[in-house]
Design a protein around this nucleic acid. Structure first.
Lengths: 91, 91
DNA sequence: ATAGATTTGTTCGTATGTATA
DNA sequence: GTATACATACGAACAAATCTA
């Protein structure tokens, strides 16, 4: 999956699966290191032009996969065990 | 009704009635005491593998029966008048 | 110490499409 | 044809936890 892909409502693949794939790819690429906070639900809604429940469905999927975890009142984070590529910030 | 029953899609009984029966039995058994919060819509969907509208239909039935009540933004709770069996937690 | 803003959690309502009994 | 059920997707409001000014 291309981490820079955009959402296509005409695709047969459900939108929430597209978003989950994009986020998974971005995490693997190293956009966010383990234990780092990703975009908030509101930011995901704005960035990808989706409804909140749709973004939550994508996030919930990645939580079930063990890629993300959430902390109420704080945000959504990359799991410590998530596989990511090192970036310059990890030095 | 067995409180530990599972949903059977081959049953002639509609799924939402099966779920309502299971939840009613669990409340009578004392899984949740009066005024205690039960599973959220999303948790019911996950726990019983149903569609959201189906779980809402079951919950709405129990609300009409006076067994449950909901508080928007908070959750679904067992009515104070609901008949339940005491459990160790009620001591 | 209070107020406001942010963020996740939850319920409520609605709509479309598909499939089955 | 009607009712049931699933899947997807949108929008809104309220609640609670957290953080910040």
């Amino acid at each position: 999956m291309d981490p820079d892909a955009t959402i296509d409502h005409d695709e047969p693949t459900p939108v929430y699966l597209q978003l989950a794939g994009i986020l998974r790819a971005r995490i693997e690429r190293g956009d966010w290191a383990p234990n780092r906070q990703i975009l908030s639900e509101a930011q995901l809604v704005q960035a990808y032009g989706l409804a909140r429940e749709t973004t939550r469905k994508a996030v919930r999927l990645l939580i079930d996969e063990g890629v993300l975890f959430t902390v109420p009142g704080r945000g959504t984070f990359v799991s410590p065990q998530a596989i990511t590529q090192p970036t310059a910030e990890d030095v």
